[in-house]
């Protein structure tokens, strides 16, 4: 059967894109036009640390931990967003690269609580020799709302004897989300997921600037007064535990959160007819978290409020036993 299609065909399959040859740490590698240096590095098995990068989001190249050295380039370049070009010679382990990665990790570790940022981050900190303590003892946490009121272009210049941090009390203004911005590395993922890359609700944005930059609703209003629709897609992409479902935060607070005892089962959402895949995280026959696989084409990891939180009716049946 032949199909006569009056307009262009499907988006260009990978196999039809032009091939590009370059080298990574001296190894030749072939990628396709449009692929990034990170793609090239991964293809030859060179690990590049990333924090703000996620496959389902447009790269924002802000964390700079993925920088690599490209011959002929004045500065290092972010591998997550830099497109591969023919003949590029890429170094991923030069002194310059290692120094910058170490410093990025050190700057973050000295200003943000990375304790829930995952094993990889802890390993990179060790591998690169990042030493948060070089910058002095952490300053006292800010009062609630203090960082949200910081005015651009103005700040209190301290004596430098303690290292400024983003530490502050966690925000909890609704029953579903906890926002603990002491853990926020400002990777923009939540903003992208809430915004144009997925949800297009734009309940949050980056506000303020410099070290006072933060994720904020308009005028720092609580989520119930904001445009938030509780899809949880921001939480799903947060790499550091700054954004967390209250169900998880509460279990963690009780010391009862135990991922080793959790089973993850993939099923389909019980609500509308779109067919979103759910991953039910079950601990002790109780659903403790719902996610969606990033690599499934229906959701790309995203859900709506019903899919994300609407499982409670099943638990309620158990409670009624």
């Amino acid at each position: 059967m032949t199909i006569t299609s009056p307009t262009a065909a499907d988006p260009t399959p990978v196999s039809l894109r032009r091939r590009i040859e370059l080298s990574v740490d001296g190894q030749p590698v072939t990628v396709h036009e449009g692929d990034t240096l990170l793609d090239a590095c991964r293809q030859v098995g060179v690990e590049v640390p990333t924090l703000c990068f996620l496959e389902t989001l447009a790269p924002v190249n802000v964390c700079r931990v993925c920088v690599v050295e490209v011959e002929g380039s004045r500065t290092l370049v972010p591998s997550c967003s830099r497109k591969a070009e023919p003949g590029m010679s890429v170094q991923t382990a030069s002194d310059r690269v290692r120094t910058s990665r170490r410093m990025v990790l050190e700057l973050l570790a000295s200003s943000v609580d990375l304790s829930l940022a995952g094993d990889d981050v802890q390993r990179w900190i060790a591998e690169y020799g990042a030493r948060a303590d070089r910058h002095g003892p952490a300053a006292a946490p800010a009062a609630a709302g203090e960082r949200d009121r910081a005015r651009p272009g103005h700040h209190h210049v301290g004596d430098g004897l303690s290292a400024a941090t983003v530490h502050q009390p966690a925000k909890r203004d609704n029953e579903l989300y906890q926002r603990d911005y002491s853990r926020c590395i400002l990777c923009y993922k939540c903003v992208e997921a809430c915004g144009e890359d997925a949800q297009n609700t734009f309940a949050i944005a980056v506000a303020g600037r410099g070290f006072d930059a933060r994720i904020s609703t308009e005028f720092d209003v609580g989520l119930p007064d904001s445009a938030c629709v509780y899809c949880g897609n921001c939480i799903a992409v947060c790499p550091t535990g700054a954004l967390m479902f209250t169900s998880e935060a509460d279990l963690r607070a009780e010391g009862a959160w135990d991922e080793d005892r959790q089973q993850v089962t993939r099923t389909v959402c019980p609500y509308c007819g779109v067919g979103c895949n759910l991953e039910l995280h079950v601990q002790d026959n109780t659903i403790v978290k719902v996610t969606s696989p990033l690599d499934h084409e229906v959701t790309s990891g995203n859900l709506c409020v019903k899919g994300r939180f609407g499982f409670q009716f099943a638990q309620a049946r158990r409670a009624a036993d």
């Binding site: 609704n174 029953e175 609500y271 939180f309 609407g310």
Partner: peptide
């Protein structure tokens, strides 16, 4: 959702 039998189970802000 529909008659609320299922969505009544969670506390939506």
């Amino acid at each position: 959702y529909n008659t609320g039998v299922q969505t009544g189970g969670y506390r939506s802000p």
